[in-house]
Simulated assay, not measured.
Amino acid sequence: MRLKLSLIPQNGKFSRPNKHAVQGFIYHMLKGTEYGQRHDQPKFKFFTFSDFFVDREGKATFLVSSPDSGFIRALQSAVKERESVYIGNDEYRVVEIKKFKLPLRNRFQTGSPIVIYRNSEEDEYFKLHAHRDLWFFLERLKDNAERKYNAFYNDDFILEGPLFDRLIPKVRNNNKLDVYVKVVKNGVPFPVIGSNWELLEKERIEPQERKFYRFIMEAGLGEKNSLGFGFLNPIRGEGRA
C-alpha cells in the first residue's frame, strides 16, 4: 500500500529535505499509534519512501510505501489531523494526502536509489561503476529481499532463478552510474552510495511468486529502505504479472 503526500513550504521556497529528516517526520507522525516503537525495533522496518518531485507551482510530493497496510493507514490518519507538518526545521502545508494500491506488474523503475553493501563490516557500499559486477548486485539484492520477506511473513520462501531478467541503469548527466546521497544524522553528514534504474524486469512472475514481488514493490529493494532508499514504481503499459 502507498501514501501520497503533497506539501507546500510555508516560506514559499522548497529546499529538498534530508532523508534522515523525512524518516524522523514519519516516526514522529506514528507516535501514539501501534507503530510508535517501530524506530526502536531491530532489523527491518518494512517501509520506504520515494525522492521528492516538485511541480511548477512549487508543490512537493513524495510517496511512502509499505507491505503493512496498517502502517500506511496509521500514517495517513496522523497526517490528516494536521494542517501543516515539520520536516526537519521546515514547515509545510499539507495540500493532499491519498492512500492507494498499485497493481503488480513485471517491470519496475526506481523512485529512489538502490543501496547494497559490498562489505558491511567495513561499511563499504557496492558501486556499480567501479565494481562492475552485476551478478553480485543481483545476488545480494535477492538475498536481502528473501530475508525481509521471510521476516515479515515468518516464512522460508526461496526464489528460484534470478530476481530480474533484464536491467537498464539510469545514467546521470556526467555519465556516472552511481548516486552519492549525503545523509545528515545528529548534525553529522555521511554519504550513502546507490544506483537508479530505468528498468528492472522479470520476464514472467509465476503465480507462487506474486506475493513475493508485491512485497518487494512495497517494502523496497536493498539496504536502508527506512531512510528512503530502494523505492520501486511499477511501470505502466505492460500486462499485469
Rank of each mutant, 00 (worst) to 15 (best):
R2G: 09
K4S: 12
K4R: 15
L5W: 06
I8N: 00
P9F: 12
Q10P: 01
G12V: 08
K13R: 15
K13G: 08
K13S: 15
K13W: 15
P17D: 06
P17F: 08
K19F: 07
H20T: 01
H28N: 07
T33C: 10
T33P: 04
Y35F: 15
R38H: 06
H39M: 00
D40N: 14
Q41V: 09
P42R: 10
K43P: 05
F44W: 15
F44Q: 13
F44G: 08
K45A: 05
K45M: 01
K45C: 12
F46W: 05
F47I: 08
T48C: 06
S50L: 07
F52I: 00
F53R: 13
K59C: 11
F62N: 00
V64L: 11
P67E: 14
S69W: 15
S69E: 15
G70D: 14
R73T: 14
A74L: 11
A74I: 10
L75I: 09
Q76A: 15
Q76H: 14
K80H: 12
E81Y: 08
E83R: 11
I87A: 06
Y92D: 02
E96N: 11
E96A: 10
K98E: 14
F100G: 06
L102Y: 01
L104Y: 09
R105A: 07
N106V: 00
N106L: 07
R107F: 12
S112C: 01
P113N: 00
I114K: 06
I114Q: 06
V115Q: 05
V115L: 12
I116V: 14
Y117G: 03
N119V: 08
N119M: 10
D123M: 09
K127G: 03
K127P: 05
L128K: 07
A130H: 15
A130G: 11
A130C: 13
H131G: 09
H131K: 10
R132Q: 15
F136Q: 04
N144I: 11
A145Q: 04
Y149I: 10
A151Q: 13
F152E: 02
F152V: 11
Y153R: 10
Y153V: 03
D155G: 04
D156W: 06
I158T: 15
L159V: 13
L159W: 12
L159R: 04
E160D: 14
E160R: 14
P162L: 10
L163T: 11
I168S: 09
I168G: 05
K170G: 02
V171N: 08
R172N: 06
R172H: 09
N174T: 13
N175S: 04
V179L: 02
Y180R: 13
V181S: 11
V183R: 01
V183K: 02
V184C: 02
V184W: 04
K185E: 12
K185D: 07
N186T: 06
N186M: 09
V188L: 01
P191T: 14
I193W: 01
G194N: 11
S195R: 00
N196K: 06
W197I: 00
E198V: 05
L200P: 05
E201K: 15
E201Q: 14
K202E: 08
K202A: 03
K202G: 07
R204P: 12
I205Y: 10
R210F: 10
R210Y: 06
F212W: 06
R214L: 13
F215E: 03
F215P: 03
A219W: 01
K224H: 04
K224D: 01
S226I: 02
F229M: 01
G230H: 10
L232N: 01
L232S: 02
I235S: 07
I235R: 09
G237L: 09
